Simulated assay, not measured.
Amino acid sequence: MDGMAGQKSTLVWVVNICAFLLVLLWTIPTLGLFVSSFRDRDQIANSGWWQSFSAAEQTGFVRTGTDDDAVQEGGLYVIEGNVTEGDQTLVAWGTGARDPARFQPGDTTEIEDGWQLTVNADGSYRLTSPEPFEMRRGERIFTTTEVPPKFTTGNYQRVLTAEGLGRAFMNTLTVTIPATVIPILIAAFAAYALAWMEFPGRAILTAAVVGLLVVPLQVSLIPLLRLHNEIGIGKGYLGIWLAHTGFGLPLAVYLLRNYMVGLPREVIESARVDGATEFQIFRRIILPLSFPALASFAIFQFLWVWNDLLVATVFLGNTREQLVMTGVLRELMGSKGGEWEILATSAFISIAVPLIVFFAMQKYLVRGLLAGSVKGG
Rank of each mutant, 00 (worst) to 15 (best):
R140P: 14
I184R: 00
V209A: 06
V181K: 05
P148K: 10
I240T: 15
L227P: 02
G123A: 04
P130R: 11
A168P: 09
P223S: 01
A179D: 00
R167Q: 14
N120A: 13
L225S: 14
P132N: 03
E146G: 00
V209N: 04
L173P: 06
S220W: 10
F151I: 02
S124M: 07
M135K: 15
P149S: 09
T174I: 15
I177E: 00
P200A: 14
L238T: 05
G154S: 14
P130G: 12
P148N: 07
A207E: 05
T152I: 06
A179S: 14
E146T: 03
R167N: 14
T118Y: 08
R136W: 12
L165I: 15
V214F: 09
G138P: 14
G138R: 11
M135S: 14
T206W: 11
G166H: 08
I182D: 08
E163G: 11
T174L: 15
I233C: 01
H228G: 00
R126V: 10
F142C: 14
I186Y: 11
V209C: 04
F169D: 06
G234I: 08
A179N: 00
L117E: 07
S124Y: 05
T206E: 10
L221F: 06
I182E: 06
Q157V: 04
G154T: 12
T144V: 14
L238S: 04
L205S: 11
I184F: 00
I182F: 13
F169S: 04
R140T: 13
V147T: 06
L224H: 04
L194T: 07
I240M: 08
K150G: 04
N155G: 02
A193R: 06
A188L: 08
F199N: 08
F169C: 03
P250V: 00
G166L: 10
Y192D: 12
T152N: 07
A188M: 11
E163W: 07
F169P: 01
F151D: 05
A203G: 13
T128V: 09
R158A: 10
T128C: 02
R126D: 08
T128M: 04
L185M: 15
E131N: 06
E146D: 03
F189V: 15
L227C: 04
E131G: 02
T206R: 13
P149N: 11
H228W: 12
L205G: 06
F189K: 03
G201W: 13
L224I: 01
A191W: 14
G232T: 10
T174F: 10
A243I: 07
